[in-house]
């Protein structure tokens, strides 16, 4: 790891201010991606602004069907929240399958979404649950947030503070994990609220997480796994690597989507 300068922020404002004074600074949440990346010398920030001690960025509040999750909430805390489980168990289940128990104790929802790894699980939930991403500057709709691989609408120095959404009637997330790394080779989050259906795909797309309009239309017409049988998934949009070619991933997307609808019930 190259040298770096560590700063601990105690409030969102202080963090933004520290970033403003930094050279090539990076925010540090749980560090489960950033520290690993720095060890490989793939990232070399001059300054790290640690967000982990900002109390206002942690915690889950459920008010009726309205859910707000602080960006600094760990995967473990999302997975084990009884209040969240009561209104949106799909999100708890997603969080419970990220990394391993130790990683889930440190990694945060805000860190994962801000990093926007194309194989990360959370971006699919943000998109399918139509979350509002609240930052220290503004509110960003899920559909405007994800720009491409590792690229979001966040501006320089902008910090995600929380996520909020109205719990869906039905939802589920299913992923096909890479047998070695356990990263999603295809992960599909389906959510139904009233007559609206959203289907978000992670792990597979060559441009990062995306919604699949064809599957959404089919599931709006009939909420059942078989409704997806005639929908085509374009292999031209899929990643291809040593773990699977684009046809394979396109097929996986459909299989995961069917499983997700079946799991959502």
């Amino acid at each position: 790891m190259y040298e770096t300068n560590y700063h601990r922020a105690s409030s969102v404002d202080e963090a933004a201010q520290l970033m403003g004074n930094a050279g090539e600074g990076k925010y540090l949440a749980g560090g489960m991606t950033l520290i690993a990346t720095m060890k490989q010398r793939l990232a070399a920030p001059s300054d790290l602004i640690d967000l982990r001690h900002i109390g206002s960025m942690k915690g889950i509040t459920v008010n009726g069907r309205n859910v707000t999750i602080g960006a600094g909430t760990s995967h473990y805390d999302v997975a084990s929240s009884d209040a969240l489980k009561a209104v949106c168990p799909a999100l708890c289940s997603l969080a419970s399958h990220i990394g391993d128990p130790h990683v889930r104790h440190m990694g945060t929802i805000g860190g994962s979404v801000a990093n926007d790894d194309p194989a990360a699980d959370y971006p699919s939930a943000v998109l399918a649950l139509n979350m509002t991403v609240k930052t220290n500057k503004r509110e960003i709709a899920a559909d405007d947030f994800f720009v491409g691989m590792f690229e979001t609408a966040l501006e320089e120095g902008e910090i995600i503070v929380s996520f909020s959404f109205e719990a869906p009637d039905k939802a589920a997330y299913q992923k096909f994990p890479n047998p070695a790394s356990r990263y999603a080779m295809a992960g599909v989050f389906v959510a139904k609220k009233g007559s609206d259906v959203r289907v978000a795909v992670t792990g597979a797309g060559s441009n990062g997480v995306f919604r699949h309009q064809g599957m959404e239309a089919a599931l709006k017409a009939a909420w059942a796994p078989d409704a997806l049988a005639a929908v085509s998934v374009d292999a031209g949009m899929m990643m291809a690597d040593i773990h699977g070619n684009s046809d394979y991933r396109a097929n996986l997307v459909k299989v995961m989507a069917k499983r997700a609808v079946a799991a959502a019930g």
Partner: peptide, 11 residues
């Protein structure tokens, strides 16, 4: 439980 190879001492 945490993985101490992926946390800085200062953190």
């Amino acid at each position: 439980s945490v993985k101490s190879c992926t946390i800085l001492a200062v953190q």
